[in-house]
Amino acid sequence: MMSSPKTIALKIEFGGGMELLFANQRSHKLSIPARVPVDNSTKELQAEPDSSNTKPTDIVFLIHYLRDHLLKEREELFIENGTVRPGILVLINDTDWELEGEGDYKLQDGDEIVFISTLHGG
């Protein structure tokens, strides 16, 4: 039997109307590979670990993964130019992602990532 690639467990929360794009579900638990393709492709996640075209999984990869596997509608309201659309706040373990390197933050097992839309009605 092949050993399955190492994975990390994450908790994802959507708020501020973001959840409407994700089947109206606020809280999600998921498990993604610890190493992922550098091009953020989420289709073939069996890429051989430690090969030169992989990287430790990061927020940019997570954004692509959420788009490909959890998003139910209107991807243009979530992702733009390979990152979240301006106006979406991201928190990494309750800290503004701007303090954590934004998309380059390397995800750790057990991290909690929150996406909040600021674009929905006042």
């Binding site: 708020g15 501020g16 109307g17 409407l20 706040l89 928190l91 309750d94 503004d96 929150v114 909040i116 839309s117 600021t118 929905h120 009605g121």
Partner: peptide, 15 residues
Amino acid sequence: VMYAYFKKLDYFSTE
């Protein structure tokens, strides 16, 4: 939005 999030205020968000 950060204030509402950190204070866990109860608000409604739909277009």
